[in-house]
Simulated scan of single mutants.
Amino acid sequence: MFTQRIKRLVNYYVKLTGTRDPANIARFLGITIAILPLGNISGNYKLINRKRWIFINEDIPVDSTFFKIVLAHELGHAIFHRKENCAFIKNRTLLLTSGIEKEANIFAAYLLLSNELLQEYSNFTKEQLCQTTGYPQELLELRLK
């Protein structure tokens, strides 16, 4: 399955960049991040003239957990689905089961929810971990599979 491949790539990029921050990894990879009005779309990945772009909805606070989730998800598309144009639709994308959306979600889960973070909160219930970190339970469930 693609989970092993995702884990290897997450570990590779974390080791290469020294961070789990999706914005720093995207910049390292030469992916431009633009914050724009996107209506009901939270984020979007596009390949334009052989240049990779991640667009994030301006309504999402840059310092929020949701911003990181959307950015990590779109970074997953930029890495795995370079030639696809993909949108993250608020409140829906984590529930979608199409192959490319699932892959991007799993990438985001492994990037944002490290083994160290899970160990740090090992005495918490899933609900407590989600409330404390701000990550949705769907993302945690993907990471724990």
Rank of each mutant, 00 (worst) to 15 (best):
L16W: 14
L75S: 01
D21S: 14
V70W: 06
L95A: 13
A87S: 10
N57M: 03
L75H: 00
E58G: 05
I60Y: 07
G76D: 05
V14E: 04
N40L: 11
V62S: 15
L38T: 13
F67Y: 13
I35T: 13
F67V: 03
K7L: 13
K83Y: 03
L9W: 07
F55S: 05
L16I: 09
D63Q: 08
G30V: 01
K68C: 06
N11P: 08
I69K: 00
T19Y: 11
T3K: 15
P61I: 03
V10C: 05
V14D: 01
A72W: 01
F80K: 00
R8A: 15
H73Y: 07
W53V: 10
K83L: 04
I33P: 11
I48L: 12
A23C: 14
I6F: 11
L29N: 05
I54V: 08
N91P: 04
G76E: 07
E84V: 03
T93F: 07
N57Y: 01
L29G: 02
G43W: 00
G39H: 00
V10F: 01
S42R: 04
H81L: 04
Y13R: 10
R92A: 06
A87L: 05
G99A: 12
S42N: 08
A26L: 08
R50S: 11
K15M: 09
N49M: 10
L36D: 14
H73P: 04
I6G: 10
A78W: 04
I25P: 01
E74H: 11
Q4S: 13
R82F: 09
D21V: 09
N85K: 08
T17Y: 08
I33W: 06
M1G: 13
G76N: 07
R20H: 12
T3Y: 15
